[in-house]
Design a protein around this nucleic acid. Sequence first.
DNA 1: GTGCAATTTTGCAGGGACTGCAACGATAAT
DNA 2: ATTATCGTTGCAGTCCCTGCAAAATTGCAC
Lengths: 215, 215
Amino acid sequence: MTDVKEPGLRERKRVATRHAIERAAIELSLEKGYENVTVDEIAEQADVSPRTFFNYFSSKEAAVVGHHPEGPDAEKVEAFLAAPVDQPVLAGIHQMLSSFIEAKSDEDTRAVHELQERRMQLMLRHPTLFRQRMEGMDEMTNKMTEIVARRLRVLDPALDEAPARDRARLVVFVSFAGMRHAWANWADHGGEGRLAECVKSSFDQLHVLSSQVNV
Amino acid sequence: MTDVKEPGLRERKRVATRHAIERAAIELSLEKGYENVTVDEIAEQADVSPRTFFNYFSSKEAAVVGHHPEGPDAEKVEAFLAAPVDQPVLAGIHQMLSSFIEAKSDEDTRAVHELQERRMQLMLRHPTLFRQRMEGMDEMTNKMTEIVARRLRVLDPALDEAPARDRARLVVFVSFAGMRHAWANWADHGGEGRLAECVKSSFDQLHVLSSQVNV
DNA sequence: GTGCAATTTTGCAGGGACTGCAACGATAAT
DNA sequence: ATTATCGTTGCAGTCCCTGCAAAATTGCAC
């Protein structure tokens, strides 16, 4: 099932130019500021025509924010659903999400990882970009909601489907609040240290909040 | 202090055209879909030149999403800070925020209220617009954070300023998660009923979440 | 009301994002 | 080698948005 066939020249070139464009977009933006960079410049730097740029990315913004993750890996989902009943839901979600924070190290070499690093720096300089990235996570929100709903019904089989979805949605939004909080803190510290640490801290605080009366 | 002087012809005309533009933008968008409406059309409908449109709004989007509230009224803030210590923080925030949900009935007649109603319908058709509205709430986020931080220090005078800010930020993000949840539910039901009801329900659920062990 | 100052409106020129189309070029399949 | 497939490019055009300077409108003093 897992198509491991040779990519072929065509495909290889494709990912190469895609990478080149992303890189050009990010580096130029770090250099001159996102809004001072034109698509033409990016295209030139990436050695493609401006028209080709739009064959790869639907907008200038899309080139710098990168692809939105579509959802957690199946294995993470399994682990989440099958976790012991005393594991807090938020903790489980944290586990699932952390795979997105930490680079998927076995992706396509560490050139991708490098790019991700630079992207973070860029989003640090332009909070708008971070917000736009979060905005584009609709797909993931829906999938996460479904997953969490299933977990909730595992924990409480008496729960009907509709209310489960409802509560799941809320929990997912709360998780995203945690992510935003983590990001905000990380940005406040100038991006020093691992973002993953901040995420962990934020989720811990969420948990503390839950266990307090006067929230 | 409260400048109650006659607005003068100039000012009156100004708010009139502003209103005309907003109305034109929203009605046209409801009619033909947001992305199928051009600024030129809006300007024409509002009887101004396209250039004038941009004197009033910095972007086409700004005309339809309207002005972002800058923060809660001083009185609401006072009430929040002086509330009895057994009032949950989230409940207090709900109180403060609800003034934004419910139309400020004593504003400028109910033409404004009407416009707000139509705006909601439009955001229902175009979720992107709602997200962009939330995105533009940076100002408010900061103010809210400061207010909540003060409340936290009222509840626990031993709390230092930095940690108070930190937790306050998280609480504010969680509140916004509640708002999003409320909006999502409201949208799912096709915008029937009062949005304020959904908000109340969402905040109630947030409170329930807090009091459960396995969050 | 007349003249003057402050503001607002408007047209114009132009930059930059983005799209559809059709020609061209490179890769893959036979 | 030939053909089919797919990627690349240029071009023309639309739309969003901006700076600038001229024209119109309003506020104010006389």
